[in-house]
Simulated scan of single mutants.
Amino acid sequence: MSPSRPLFKRSLLAQALARDVAGESFVDYSSGLFLAAPRRTGKSTFLNNDFIPECENRGWLAVYVDLWAARDSDPAQLISGAIGAALARFENPVSKAAKKAGVEKISLLRTLSWDFSKPQLPSGTTLAKALEVLHSISGKMIVLIVDEAQHALNSESGLNAMFALKAARDHLNRGLQPDGIRLVFTGSSRDKLANLVLKSKQPFFGANITSFPLLGHDFVEFATHLWNKRLADSNQFSADDMEYAFERVGRRPEMLNQLLTEVSVGRGEASNLGELLRTGALNHQAGIWSDYESACNDLSALQLAVLNVMAERTIGKQAFAPFAEQTFEDVNRKLEQAHAEPNASTPNVQKALDALRDKELVWKANRGEYALEDCAMAQWLTRVNKAD
């Protein structure tokens, strides 16, 4: 982060996660790694600049797909496209490997006339079979990384793709050589990502969600040094001021960069950069909170009560069961505290959830699970309720 954009390397974290994914440590993610952290906190940057190079250094074949990059596209097509692009790198030996894997030419290779310039799997080819061929062709363990994996839950085909990846994992990791594939999923919402693992009918039931480590003080020191190199010796940022600002912008490097640019360039040679930085960070935080407050001011008592209960579940890392008896009790308690009629019921809560979805405050998975659209809102709601 800076005008020259030097990279802050997180090599130790990449090495640790690679060991975990490989099953070489006490923390074994060989069945799947699920990383959750708020958007724009550095997950994708880490994956591309640290984790994927570490995988390649180990001799693994990393296949990366970002479901957020093309949100209007079918997640299943994006995943198959990434696998197809990886297969295209091994165009020459594909025919031989496909035959060894028992794949019909017409289904995978279209009678050996598959157009490798178009990174899509031929119609009728399963993800499991394509990954099996890719593993056979490359002779390497595949690490399939699905960034913002929660978007797969928005459609039946996307969810089916998740089940297909589980089937591929089970197939390629069996027997005496259980190192065919590793799966890594990231998500900007822990609640949304959890919809892949919490219930027995979900594809990766039983897996754990791991919090992606946010950038720490070592990054703050890196950023401080980087920015101070372009400033006069008498006009420098302190690491304490930088840390204060970084925390207020949610430990998001891009937002810190924007704030630093405004303060150091937009304000010229001001001698109080630290004060300006802290003030700018507070204004940024206040702006976000003001947006949350404006959104909540437009809600009915029941809608706000449902939102507050969802926030409590998010903070407590619990699943939100919208029509459970306990949920009705908690919503009614919120309504009573607001001196409103305690009228929580299945039809009323459903109407409230529909309204919250229309206002883009609540997200719904294809199979009916709900989560806050912005998990940071849960922290703000908790703070406001404590103040009350």
Rank of each mutant, 00 (worst) to 15 (best):
G280M: 08
P75W: 09
G268S: 06
G23W: 02
E247F: 00
E132W: 02
G139T: 06
L361G: 01
L47N: 06
P38D: 05
A286M: 08
A62S: 14
N332D: 15
T125A: 15
V331K: 04
L196M: 14
A18F: 10
V349A: 04
S136C: 09
L183F: 02
G250N: 01
R252T: 10
P253A: 09
L109R: 15
T346Q: 13
F51I: 08
N49L: 09
D218A: 07
G268K: 10
W227Y: 15
A82W: 09
W114A: 11
D28R: 10
H217I: 11
G102T: 09
K334T: 03
S80R: 11
H135Y: 13
A245L: 05
K43G: 11
N235G: 02
K317E: 12
A82V: 00
N173F: 01
E156Q: 11
P75M: 10
P347I: 06
N366C: 07
D354P: 00
P178C: 02
R251Q: 13
G266W: 03
D298K: 15
V362Y: 02
Y244V: 00
R190D: 06
F328W: 13
V143T: 07
R19T: 11
N272A: 01
L112E: 15
L7T: 14
L61K: 11
V331T: 07
R313A: 14
A387P: 01
P347C: 03
R252S: 13
Q379H: 15
